[in-house]
């Protein structure tokens, strides 16, 4: 998966950006109200945006549908911004993880940490709301929602 950089914009929201396979830098500013700005960075001055596109919440959904993305990340981002003290993290199981092949229930994750695994991303596929019997594989990314210390514990469990 492409690495997405996240930068906080105090008083505005958050900026997410990544570099395309052809080397263009693309950024999205997510405003607190949900409005988005899509931008392409200038090659000569990498701080500057050569194109900026203003997107309403509805426009962003439309563009998202056209591009064929999943809505999981977006919904969870919104939740994270609205509820203080709630953290969302993407935890990837490494190849060496002893947890690969075990089910979510095996780890007793929710009982021990209070953290919920709300989705699992495997390659191009998204498994939303996986049950306790869902088996995690090496390379899976689990989307975890809970308190920051709880998520740290889950990370430890998944990497054990």
């Amino acid at each position: 998966m492409t690495e997405i950089q996240e930068v906080q914009l105090p008083g505005v929201g958050v900026r997410l950006d990544f570099t395309t396979s052809l080397g263009e830098r693309v950024g999205v500013v997510v405003h607190r109200g949900g409005r988005r700005e899509l931008m392409v960075y200038d090659r000569d001055d990498p701080d500057r945006c050569s194109t900026v596109l203003q997107l309403s919440v509805e426009d962003a959904h439309t563009l998202n549908d056209i591009l064929g993305g999943s809505r999981v990340a977006e919904v969870t981002t919104t939740v994270g911004q609205e509820i203080e003290g709630l953290a969302i993290d993407w935890l990837t199981l490494s190849g060496e993880s002893g947890f690969a092949g075990k089910t979510i229930g095996d780890g007793m994750i929710r009982t021990r940490t209070g953290v919920s695994i709300v989705a699992v991303l495997r390659g191009e596929t998204t498994f939303a709301a996986p049950g306790p019997s869902f088996t995690l594989e090496a390379g899976d990314t689990a989307v975890a929602v809970g308190t920051p210390p709880g998520i740290a514990e889950v990370r430890a469990i998944l990497e054990a």
Partner: peptide, 24 residues
């Protein structure tokens, strides 16, 4: 400043977080 940044479409610029941080 926040009005200038948004009017000039500069919220996504690389230096903008540093401007906002100074304001904070």
């Amino acid at each position: 400043i926040s009005k200038v940044l948004s009017d000039l479409d500069r919220l996504g610029y690389g230096e903008t977080p540093s401007i906002l941080n100074v304001l904070v």
